[in-house]
Nucleic acid binder design. Structure first.
Lengths: 149, 149
DNA sequence: CGATATTTGCAAGGTAGCGAACGATTGTCA
DNA sequence: TGACAATCGTTCGCTACCTTGCAAATATCG
């Protein structure tokens, strides 16, 4: 969050937050005319590119908690963009499929890759690799601490 | 969010998100016994270190939207940790002050610096600097795009 | 086979973020 | 001075994240 100017150091976490929220805000602003949130877009993106998916697998792929995904799916079903059928062998699982309206909307949506390009385009590849490595290592350490608590 | 394995590139934004949420989850877990959220902690931290603050200034310092801070302050007032008085020259402004209960709780809270240390301790300073530079540049670019939209 | 454990999804309740719209106050300027 | 603009905080509605607790279905193992 803020700079934590008492120590001067903790800027990394603060910038991770700022960067994440800035990208997400741009995504939300771009999708607002289509009445879509960023995570809803990720769900449509996955279904459009990988076909019908079991809700459990989608949660794993997008790294969303079951409860979180459940709400998002409910919203998308209410908008008739996604169909949720309890088909298949396992009666606990729900299969998610794009509806015709969902496919139509997906084709109308603008390409969002400009966001990533605008953010990181032109930056030295080695610096990007360093950034990823640092963030990845920090994340792993934090998650280890969380697990062992 | 996810890896966006179609292009393989957008990992930076995904790791920024993961790292931010991992740190925040650890913060939330540590504060849970005290019934405090991470942003509530930042408000107490600021008031404990900088003294009574006008709500507007606190929002700027912590980079929180007015609507967001309003809700958090309401929560802290309900818990009788913070007092919100409409004092001063400008009758629009609200002054935020730690109550005695707030000061007492603040002294009981554990030191959270271990989180930053665990995440980034031992990592090469130059790499950390590169990470901050990359994230900062990306954030600025994104915010520029947001403004001009 | 049957008791137990695991998995899957849902609902409720809480935190944190946003935009938009609204009073109330204050500042500005013709 | 008086109309208009800007500021400050709140409220409303929304997205998205979490935990906890539940029920149903399935898997596992004695």
């Amino acid at each position: 969050m803020p700079e934590r100017s008492d120590a001067g150091r903790p800027a990394v976490g603060g910038w991770a937050k700022r960067c994440y929220f800035a990208g997400r805000a741009l995504m939300d602003a771009t999708l607002r005319p289509y009445d879509l949130g960023s995570t809803q877009w990720y769900v449509l993106w996955h279904l459009a590119n990988f076909g019908p998916t079991v809700q459990r697998d989608l949660g794993r792929a997008l790294e969303l908690e079951r409860a979180t995904l459940s709400g998002i799916v409910t919203t998308l079903v209410r908008k008739t963009l996604v169909e949720q059928t309890s088909s298949g062998e396992d009666q606990r699982q729900r299969l998610l499929t794009l509806t015709v309206a969902g496919e139509t909307l997906w084709r109308e949506l603008p390409d969002l890759s400009f966001i990533h390009d605008a953010a990181f385009g032109g930056i030295d590849e080695a610096d990007l690799a360093t950034t990823v490595r640092v963030l990845q290592l920090a994340t792993e350490r934090l998650q280890n601490l969380l697990r062992k608590e």
